[in-house]
Amino acid sequence: MARPELTEHLPTGALGKHHWIEPLNDGTHVLIRPLEPQDREREFAFIKHLSPQSRRLRFLATINEPSESMLDQLMDVDCCRRMAYVGLSMDQGKLIETGVARYAALADSSQCESAVVVADSWQRKGLGTLLMKHLINTARLNGFTEMLSIDSEANSGMHRLANKLGFVRRQDPLDATQVIHRLNLC
């Protein structure tokens, strides 16, 4: 049963086959759904409010906030070659983004590259796992045979998550500070 505080601000009929209300490890419920164009400001605020370390681990660079061109790229979702799922919760009557997982097809390939980030205060509650499971399932349904993620060697949280989901980790041959996690989707 959908929790009313998560669904009362959604358009009628918004909870469909691609929207889920899911419990986290601590019993908190989140709405998981595809990223939509109207989430642009929410995505900007989410990234801006990540800790500097979380932003650096997610983007493999130091940024304070996303530029317009970066935001354009992050919002470019077609639900097949480029997909993103957001985790949303209620805070003072407003839906806020608590996490996002996304993939993008690699050129002329049946591989896709993925990334996931969870708001600092929502980490270690199982949200990243839930977002990635939906993302992996969608990648399989869209015909991808392999998912990869390029991550900082220092990102122990991502290493744990990738291992839990069945990814295999290898050192990045082009950058000793990075690793590549690969998941066979067949």
Rank of each mutant, 00 (worst) to 15 (best):
Y85I: 03
S110R: 07
Y103P: 00
L95G: 07
Q92T: 14
G87N: 04
Q111G: 06
E97V: 06
A101T: 03
A101L: 05
K94C: 11
Y103C: 00
I96W: 03
E97P: 01
Q92C: 14
G99M: 06
L106Y: 01
S109C: 07
E113Y: 08
G87C: 09
S110Q: 09
L88W: 07
D91E: 15
Q92S: 15
L106W: 01
A105V: 00
E97W: 04
D91G: 08
D91A: 15
L95K: 06
L95E: 13
V86F: 01
I96T: 12
C112P: 05
S114P: 09
E97L: 07
L95T: 02
G99Q: 04
V86G: 08
V86D: 08
L88D: 08
V100P: 00
S89R: 13
A107C: 05
S89V: 12
E97T: 04
I96Y: 04
Q92H: 14
D91T: 14
E113D: 15
A104S: 07
G93N: 11
C112G: 09
S89K: 14
A105S: 05
L106A: 03
G87H: 08
S110C: 11
A101P: 08
L88H: 06
R102V: 02
E97G: 03
A104L: 02
D91I: 14
A107R: 10
V86C: 08
M90D: 15
